[in-house]
Amino acid sequence: MSSKGSTITTDHTTIREWAEKRGGKPAHVKSTGQDDAPGLLRIDFPDGKEEALEQISWEEFFEKFEEKNLAFLYQEEGAGGGESRFNKLIDRDSADE
């Protein structure tokens, strides 16, 4: 699914390849999970400025991704035509609208 230069997917391979191509790793925001749950998910980039991120495994990332019924909204290219890192995790139900 695509809109306004962005694409939405739930495909794990597509998400992982997109992130790794840009040096991104699966992560969660520290102190948002309970017990062993990872909490809020993010993609952590090497020069990212979010100190509150802690890397997790792709397995943990996608387990929570499915549990929370998320979709991945992303861009391949930015407005200037260069590689984009824009991404957002959204509710799958809202992605269909």
Results as ranks from 00 to 15, higher is better:
G39R: 08
S3G: 07
E54T: 15
R42W: 13
Q34Y: 15
T14R: 05
N69L: 11
A19I: 08
G24Q: 03
R16W: 00
Y74F: 10
K49M: 10
E20R: 06
T13F: 10
F62E: 03
W58S: 04
L73K: 05
Y74C: 00
P38Y: 13
R85P: 01
A79P: 05
A52T: 14
D35F: 15
G33Q: 09
P26A: 14
S31W: 12
A52G: 07
G5L: 07
F61M: 03
D36R: 11
S3N: 08
S6Q: 06
E60R: 07
H12W: 09
Y74M: 03
E77I: 12
D91S: 15
S84W: 07
E83W: 12
I56K: 02
L41M: 13
E60T: 10
F61A: 02
S2A: 14
T9M: 04
F45V: 07
D11Y: 06
E54Q: 14
E51A: 15
S2I: 15
F61H: 00
I15W: 00
E77M: 11
Q75G: 01
E76L: 15
G81Q: 06
W18S: 01
D36A: 14
K4Y: 12
T13S: 11
D44C: 09
D96R: 10
F62K: 02
H28K: 12
Q34E: 14
I90D: 00
S57H: 12
R16N: 00
G81W: 06
K30Q: 12
E97R: 05
K21F: 13
D47K: 10
E60K: 07
R85L: 07
M1N: 03
G80S: 14
S57G: 09
H12C: 06
S3E: 09
G33P: 02
A52M: 14
L53V: 05
D44S: 11
T32S: 09
L70T: 07
D36S: 13
E50Y: 10
A95T: 04
G48H: 05
G24N: 03
K64D: 04
W58M: 07
G5V: 06
G5R: 04
A71F: 01
T10S: 10
E97V: 06
F86I: 02
P38C: 14
L40Q: 11
K4C: 06
E67Q: 12
F61T: 03
I43W: 03
P46T: 10
D35S: 14
A71H: 03
S3Y: 06
G33M: 12
D44M: 10
G5I: 07
F86L: 02
